[in-house]
Design a protein around this nucleic acid. Structure first.
Length: 572
RNA sequence: GCGCCCGUAGCUCAGCUGGAUAGAGCGUCGGCCUUCUAAGCCGAAUGUCCCAGGUUCGAGUCCUGGCGGGCGUGCCA
């Protein structure tokens, strides 16, 4: 933290710890949190865990501890309420610490100090044989958010788009292209066309066994390494797809540090397999080279037909990442249906004796479910007519909705199109990041296009109101601020104070929804505050203090949203 | 069959390392725009935290066993 700005949370923690120590209380198990009832105080500490060690009741300990924490420039009071010690910040200390902390970009509000830690995040990783549909949204959006949060918190981050650009499916793609591909259609609607011929392959294969054989042969030819016809087709289709993906990535503000697909490991696979063989943990089983793992099906390294499988490529990727980046954490933002695969990978690493095996984590997330009106249930995979919903359609629909609402609510708005894009796209991102990862997401147009309540636009709207006040005031105050004037803003300030711990929890659990929740609560406290407290018409001293608060809240909201991959329009 | 995940208000979900009276949004009902954006605010009603045991001073949270749903389960990713 900026040495000029006092970190009041740390201050309270150390004051409490000092008092606790003098009473013989072990401070390792300190759990400070915000009391459920705000009337109790700003920070609470339950004394239950100390009772056994001290041989006293929690109530008694709370009383003693509260008595030993004397007020100072930060702590207004420490009171025992039953078994809890509750502290109250001095309002001016709270306001100054938070508002200056944010405005001056001090950690944890601004960039955290660089740590010598590296995280490798594998996310998005679309299969380039298939269109970029809504199913890819989750990995993309969750991974991109994690990438930014880790970076904000001082980690070195290697965000990798591990494209699905290799594997047996490309045999099918190549054959489908040879039979039904059209240059003209590929030019006009590349993803649509590739999807169509891929689907056609799936439809015709059951009636025509030669297709499947041809596909296997094509992948063998591709994997042979020769510069043959198969490779030329593969290269061309890969390029076209990659270009087509750039559209959604740009709209979603998603960036990667490396775009290295499975094909990147083509020439590293042999060495990987050899290393694992040399470790003596492989066996030959039913014609395939496998690693047996406890309580699970074996992990296959080389199929009976001699070609590799995704496990081989993921292992090659892990070897590469370890050697190249020396990661402390390796995250795979991949759907929950691949849990077994990642448990197998980790088990292989453990058998290899990797010390960092436990740091290889599958960041799993739930499925996107579609409503089936025939069964009345939510089901995996397809929409009713069997068509995949393209991500760009979803974004377009949300933007169109934003456009309609702007026309209705704020028709005078300048630059409507850009604002509609910002609102629509962010609404989709927010919708995907608002619940915990593991929950399945029900694909519901109505819910996604709702802009009221706990939604992206709700949070953006709070930011736009703040921005509007700042605009009218001509900016944030520059002179000294009468912090005590913000005594009535504690709900906003205390919520802002949670920013640091929230980011820490996002990292601990690899769970962006925790941050989404904070932005919602911050927006909510802002909306309420603005209703009760007028800024521009207040007495000069109060007006200046409130402006400082408004500037800080706006900035923090903006920071939080950009970490999530959302934009905050100045007006909406 | 086995493994893993989920089960909290009518619906969608929060609930942090077990701790204070289980909370939001949507929907319902009732208020609030001659003051900085009503995409908003305020209020009301709404609970067998799936069930049964157990551990604990204390369980929505931990353990065991059920029930319901989902995903996966050897050469797709």
């Amino acid at each position: 933290m900026n040495p000029d700005v006092l970190d009041i949370a740390a201050h309270v923690r150390s004051r409490l710890a000092a008092s606790a120590e003098s009473l013989g209380i072990p401070t390792t198990t300190f759990v400070l949190d915000r009391p459920k009832d705000a009337a109790h105080g700003d920070v609470g500490l339950g004394c239950f865990p100390f009772a056994k060690a001290l041989g006293k009741s929690p109530v008694e300990i709370a009383k003693e501890l509260a008595a030993s924490v004397t007020p100072d420039e930060v702590i207004e009071s420490a009171t025992a309420v039953g078994p809890f010690v509750n502290l109250r910040y001095r309002r001016e200390a709270l306001a100054e610490s938070v508002v200056r902390g944010v405005l001056e970009g001090a950690a944890p509000y601004g960039q955290w100090a660089h740590e010598d830690k590296c995280v490798v995040i594998d996310f998005s990783s679309p299969n380039i044989a298939k269109p970029f549909h809504v199913g890819h949204l989750r990995s993309t959006v969750i991974g991109a958010a994690l990438r930014r949060v880790y970076s904000h918190c001082g980690w070195r981050v290697e965000g990798i788009n591990h494209l699905g650009d290799w594997g047996a499916q490309f045999g099918k793609v190549i054959v489908a292209w040879r039979r039904w591909g059209s240059d003209e259609d590929l030019e006009r609607a590349p993803m649509r066309h590739m999807f169509e011929i891929y689907v056609r392959f799936g439809q015709e294969a059951p009636n025509d066994p030669s297709l499947q054989e041809e596909a296997s042969a094509a992948f063998r030819a591709l994997e042979s390494g020769d510069d043959n016809e198969e490779r030329a087709i593969w290269r061309r289709l890969r390029e076209v797809s990659l270009k087509a993906f750039q559209g959604p990535y740009t709209r979603l503000c998603v960036e990667f540090d490396h775009v290295t697909g499975e094909s990147f490991y083509e020439d590293k696979m042999k060495a990987t397999v050899r290393q694992i063989e040399e470790a003596g943990i492989t066996t030959l089983s039913e014609g395939a080279l496998v690693v047996e793992v406890d309580g699970m099906p074996p992990c296959i390294l080389r199929k009976t037909d001699g070609t590799t499988i995704y496990a081989t490529r993921d292992l090659a990727g892990l070897f590469y990442r370890r050697d190249t980046y020396g990661f402390d954490r390796a995250l795979y933002v991949v759907g929950a249906e691949q849990r077994l695969h990642f448990r197998q990978l980790r088990a292989v690493l453990e058998r290899l004796g990797w010390p960092q095996a436990a740091q290889v984590e599958h960041i799993d997330f739930g499925l996107i479910l579609f409503h089936n009106p025939d069964t009345g249930r939510w089901e995996k995979g397809k929409t009713r007519d069997g068509n995949a919903i393209f991500l760009s359609e979803v974004l377009d629909e949300a933007v169109a909705n934003a456009r309609r609402i702007i026309e209705d609510k704020n028709p005078e708005l300048a630059d409507k199109e850009a604002v509609a894009e910002a609102i629509g796209v962010s609404a989709i991102v927010f919708n995907d990041l608002k619940n915990s990862r593991v929950k399945d997401v029900k694909f519901d147009w109505e819910e996604m296009l709702t802009f009221e309540g706990e939604t992206g636009p709700y949070v953006q709207y709070a930011g736009a109101r703040l921005a509007s006040i700042l605009r009218k005031a001509g900016g944030a105050p520059t002179g000294p601020v009468a912090w005590q004037a913000l005594a009535d803003a504690d709900s906003v300030l205390l919520t802002m104070l949670e920013y640091g711990p929230t980011l820490q929890r996002v990292l601990d659990k690899n769970e962006p929804s925790i941050l989404t929740g904070l932005t919602t609560r911050l927006a909510s406290s802002i909306h309420s505050y603005l209703r009760e407290h007028h800024v521009l018409s207040a007495e000069p001293e109060i007006r200046e203090a409130r402006l400082a608060l408004v500037a800080a809240a706006r900035k923090l909201l903006d920071n939080g949203l950009s970490l999530l991959g959302m934009t905050s329009p100045e007006e909406m």
